[in-house]
């Protein structure tokens, strides 16, 4: 008559896109404990508006801006890159694998490649001048800064003079790599030092698991 009912927290809280932390840890710079801690964060984000255990764009924006209606070109691009399956939500595995690129121990070339895909707005394999201008305009709009159109053109033109070494009016991935190696600060935002301390920031999952185990 015995009913073996598991009460471990890891079983209770599994979301639709849950993946084995051991596998995720083997594919990313995270340890199993860090993946567990990321799950704690994931649960919080994925239930902030729609309680379905999946991160929707509004929830992602809410976490970034404290405002679910904030429209932001870059947040949209990040969301789309995290949403590898392109099904409109970020699942747990996608969340961990994508954040892995932002880990301090992740390969530099992965960070450079991710940033390139981020800025290649129309996914043509090149960053074009119009895209760069569009991104500058989005940044200015977001910051409430004003620059004249001439100034914007001048900034974009100068950047292309420096980065587009093949002078074909677009920046390819090799040119991007070379440009980043000359300006390493460009991918500073591709590293989140916080990820090294993720188990300190979200210790409750691990503590609870240990107690129940």
């Amino acid at each position: 008559m015995g009913c073996v009912c598991s009460t471990s927290s890891s079983e209770k809280v599994k979301t639709p896109g849950y993946e084995d932390p051991t596998i995720l840890a083997s594919e990313t710079p995270f340890t199993v404990s860090e993946v567990d801690a990321l799950y704690e964060l994931y649960l919080k984000l994925s239930n902030s508006i729609i309680e379905d255990g999946l991160i929707h764009k509004e929830e992602f924006q809410l976490a970034l801006f404290r405002n679910k209606n904030e429209k932001n070109l870059f947040a949209d691009r990040i969301f789309d890159l995290f949403d590898v399956k392109r099904n409109g939500v970020i699942e747990f595995g996608e969340f961990v694998r994508s954040l892995g690129v932002f880990h301090p121990n992740a390969a530099l070339e992965d960070k450079i490649a991710f940033a390139f895909r981020l800025y290649d707005l129309r996914q043509t394999g090149y960053i074009e001048k119009q895209e760069l201008k569009e991104m500058v305009l989005a940044l200015l709009h977001e910051s409430d800064l004003y620059l004249s159109d001439e100034m914007i053109e001048s900034i974009v033109d100068k950047t292309f003079e420096d980065a587009d070494t093949k002078e074909d009016g677009r920046i390819d991935e090799d040119e991007w790599k070379a440009f980043v190696s000359q300006h390493p600060s460009l991918i500073k935002n591709m590293t989140l030092p916080y990820l090294k301390d993720i188990t300190l920031a979200f210790p409750s999952f691990i503590a609870r698991t240990e107690v129940e185990d």
Binding site: L45, F65, L73, A75, L139, I155, K158, L186, K188, L192
Partner: peptide, 26 residues
């Protein structure tokens, strides 16, 4: 003074939308 000497990517990289550290704020 307008940052005319700043390269465009440097400017863009300052976007709040690219600042994922906000995800970890409680």
């Amino acid at each position: 003074v307008a940052p005319v000497t700043m390269n465009a990517f440097e400017l863009i990289s300052k976007s709040q939308g690219l600042n994922l550290s906000s995800l970890f704020e409680k």
